[in-house]
């Protein structure tokens, strides 16, 4: 038996919008730790890792570890039927082939049940070791979204370089080139507007902008984004999900042939 009650149901709606274009089908894993997902995109270039800790739910009952295969497009369709202020409860029976999403309006005058069919999904689970990153950039998520969108109108690949001067996002395409440099800025009124660059070693890596743009679908989840870079390793783009967890995107770099 599984029953997870999330008062801030809009978080789950936003989480789905952040991953459904990247991954078609995925297993949601439920354990005493929380509600989690790890999945790759169909071309195995990017990986998404989601964790919503059990403490973040108003009620969290998970009698035994459960893995539920879901089509994220269909799940998104169902969650779109929940109001932004609704409380969402996820319910499933052990060994069952459906999951139920229950939506309660804040005033309790509307209660809806949506039952979705589960599917068997064969998925690889990758072990991601904790790494010391050469450079970590924290910046407003809206700024990162803007940069990815702007650069993708010029080119297909972004080069992200961190030096002691700051962080540079560059691209090149048929019509020309673009470079955007951000400098550390911590003298801001609101901490979420800060640009914090932690450089242990300079680093420069190339990534497909198409994926970066897809990651920025998570922008509504968090005011800030953290980009962790190390030479010859996938970049990690992390958005916090309120106080309850995170969504992390891992993207393999490109190299010049």
């Amino acid at each position: 038996m599984l029953e997870l009650r999330l008062v801030q149901g809009s978080l789950l709606k936003k989480v789905l919008e952040s991953i459904k274009d990247l991954v078609n089908d995925a297993n949601f894993d439920c354990s005493s730790t929380g509600f989690s997902l790890q999945a790759m995109d169909s071309s195995h270039v990017a990986l998404v890792s989601l964790l919503l800790r059990s403490e973040g739910f108003e009620h969290y009952r998970c009698d035994r570890n459960l893995s539920m295969g879901m089509n994220l497009g269909n799940m998104s369709k169902m969650l779109k039927c929940a109001g932004n202020d609704d409380i969402i409860t996820i319910k499933a029976d052990d060994g069952g082939d459906t999951v139920t999403f229950m939506f309660e309006s804040p005033t309790q005058d509307k209660i809806a049940d949506f039952e979705m069919k589960l599917m068997d999904i064969d998925s690889e689970h990758l072990g991601i070791p904790d790494a010391e990153y050469h450079s970590i950039v924290r910046m407003p998520s809206s700024e990162f979204q803007r940069i990815c969108k702007d650069l993708s109108t010029i080119g297909d690949t972004v080069v992200i370089s961190v030096t002691k001067e700051g962080v540079k996002f560059s691209t090149a395409g048929d019509i020309g080139t673009a470079n955007i440099v951000l400098r550390q800025n911590t003298t801001v009124d609101k901490p979420e507007d800060a640009i914090v660059i932690e450089m242990n070693e300079p680093v420069s890596l190339s990534f497909a902008l198409r994926y970066m743009n897809s990651f920025t679908k998570a922008t509504p989840l968090s005011d800030t984004v953290t980009i962790s870079l190390s030479s010859e390793l996938p970049v990690v783009v992390e958005y916090k999900v309120a106080e309850m967890g995170y969504i992390r995107y891992y993207l393999a770099p490109k190299i010049e042939e």
């Binding site: 690889e124 990758l126 072990g127 190299i255």
Partner: peptide
């Protein structure tokens, strides 16, 4: 032209 790495090259299958 750039070569795109596969993410599975970096992390071990559990």
């Amino acid at each position: 032209p750039d070569k795109q790495f596969d993410i599975t090259l970096f992390y071990k299958d559990l």
